[in-house]
Amino acid sequence: MIRYLLGRAARALLTVALVVTFAFVVLRMSADPALVILGPEASPEMIVAFRKAWGLDESIFVQYLDWFRAILRGDLGISMRDGRPAIELVAERIPATLALTIPALMIKIGIGIPAGIWASLHRGTMVDRAVMGLAVAGFTVPSFVLGLTLVLIFSVWLGWLPSGGQDNWVHAVLPIVTMGVGGAAILARFTRSAMLEVLGQPFIRTASAKGVPWGRVIRGHALPNAAIPTVTMVGFMVGTLMAGAVVVESVFSWPGVGRLLVVAVSHRDLAVVQCILLVVAATMVTSNLVVDFLYGFLDPRLRSGARTGGH
């Protein structure tokens, strides 16, 4: 178990290192930030001074090592646009994003998992078809289309809810619903197929054949086994708490991390983009680690060490 977790932790660190490298390679090698920030009218002296100030005159390898060292020190660079530390800019946006993504996650779990279980237990009935039809629709409607449709109905036509901004909780309703519905659909589909797979296993037949009441077969045998793939999916959703709202935040002009990313990207604000990439990666990696840890509880085979290591 310990070896398994250590292996996972090593992979997590490797993923973060890859993200850092990716960010560095893409952002530094694409365009000259000096020209972008200073504009075409900048004098050559200004450009040289700017490059020196930001360390852009060093070789790319030196810049890379500096970047890594700075991150180890907790220094994620300074926004080229307003001169504040990038981590500060990102950190002050995080609460706004979490205010959307955490309630949305609760909707996804609260609706998606029960709906999936329900559909799997009534396989082939109208109930199942209705849930799955809705689930497919929820999956194929892009979040910006759903969001704008909700705005059209509830803000423009009915006038019940505001279409954007962040004054009080009412403003959060539409974005949360937009995100929650799509995710719930995906989770319902996923839970249903996980349940169906388990329900087709011989041990379910054995359990009901020896006279265990169906309710207890479901609770005691089917659900714990179907939980493993479902927990993986929920873990992935937890991992996207920081990053999952880029489009929805844009639709509703919500001042979160996603909006900051879009703005930073269009202004080529390297430090901020790198910082967001890193925060997103760290969230993903942490939630993956937690999921791996949970496997240990859900799957006794892992605890006894029968299935250690990666794939």
Binding site: T15, V246, L261, I276
Partner: peptide, 25 residues
């Protein structure tokens, strides 16, 4: 290959695409 695949699967594609696109035009 497996490591790259894991990496690709574990990072939100939209975020990476945004970074690449806006910086390369």
């Amino acid at each position: 290959v497996l490591m790259l695949a894991d990496f690709q699967a574990s990072m939100p594609f939209l975020i990476m695409a945004l970074a690449v696109l806006a910086f390369f035009g």
